[in-house]
Design a protein around this nucleic acid. Structure first.
Length: 276
DNA sequence: TTAAATTCCTGTAAGC
DNA sequence: TGCTTACAGGAATTTA
């Protein structure tokens, strides 16, 4: 699943691959993947534009477009989406929804088996104002995201801390994998009410979050299901996951069997001894 | 306001 | 073997 580290990896790679490139043609194969504007306007709005910059916000990929209007091509990969830069000669895969023909013989392809991804075009403020994009919480790797900020955001909340970590309005970019990994590294039970965490626990969680995200970015993300980076390569962080997908396996720290529960509708794995 | 449940979507794996 | 069913989950939407 593309979470913050996976999307960051793609943004880094696309920066080198497509920045400065011009969209010569836009082929929208599945109009329903576009959430804004209407599919026709989406295609017209992209054609002829230059991609000035590629950045990331939460799990969203942002492509700043030429024209001086501050327009962005926004790509969210959902669960199974991929956004790759390939040669036009590469065979077209199944479940392909958007193809951007760029100059210098490059193609950007959006593929998504389960169609949970989404495509948008517009100014960031307009998209947020129109309710097409959520108002995201702080970036966990931003220097301004301090333990105090996290503590303030968890205060008074009764939902399980893991459910709160998955809420993109509380903090942006975390998904099921890194929420579980961060709770394990922090030694916190994921079903603890968010507001029950003291200052020291929050500080541990904050440190664990940053540590696991930085490590995952360095490893180009986790390829658990079918995630591929912008060059079509799998990441390596899945080999270093300590709890996600390891229900019933021994805890790497104490050897006790890892427990699986459901939280916020998601499978959740933790060590009942190491996480309190 | 907050929290939980439901919905979308399709490939995979388990069970009969 | 072949069919049915459950499950995976990000985020919008609905319900309580």
């Amino acid at each position: 699943m593309p979470e913050l580290p996976e999307v960051e990896t793609i943004a880094l790679q696309l920066r080198a691959q497509v920045e400065g490139g011009t969209v010569l043609a836009c082929r929208l194969l599945t109009p329903t993947m576009v959430r804004h504007p209407e599919p026709g306007a989406f295609v017209r709005g992209l054609t002829g534009r230059r991609i000035e910059a590629v950045t990331r916000r939460g799990k969203y990929l942002l492509h700043a477009l030429s024209g001086g209007e501050g327009k962005l091509l926004v790509v969210h990969l959902g669960m199974t989406g991929s956004w790759t830069c390939v040669s036009p000669e590469a065979p077209e895969p199944e479940h392909l929804h958007l193809v951007l023909e760029l100059d210098r013989g490059r193609q950007l392809r959006f593929r998504d088996v389960r169609r949970f991804g989404r495509l948008l075009l517009g100014r960031e403020a307009d998209l947020i104002g129109a309710g097409k994009l959520p108002l995201l919480g702080p970036e966990p790797l931003d220097p301004a995201f301090t333990p105090e900020v996290l503590h303030r955001r968890l205060r008074g909340r009764r939902a399980p801390v893991k459910a709160l970590l998955l809420d993109q309005r509380l903090v942006a970019g975390l998904g099921n994998i890194y929420a579980d990994e961060a709770c394990f590294r922090a030694g916190l039970r994921p079903d603890r009410p968010g507001g029950s965490l003291g200052r020291r626990s929050v500080a541990r969680l904050h440190g664990a979050l940053r540590e696991v995200l930085r490590e995952a970015i360095a490893n180009r993300g986790s390829s658990v299901d079918d995630y591929r980076d912008a060059l079509g390569e799998p990441g390596r962080q899945q080999e270093r996951l300590l709890v996600y997908g390891r229900a019933g396996c021994p805890c790497v720290r104490c050897g006790r069997r890892l427990t699986a529960i459901r939280l916020a509708g998601r499978s959740t794995v933790f060590c009942p001894r190491c996480q309190r």
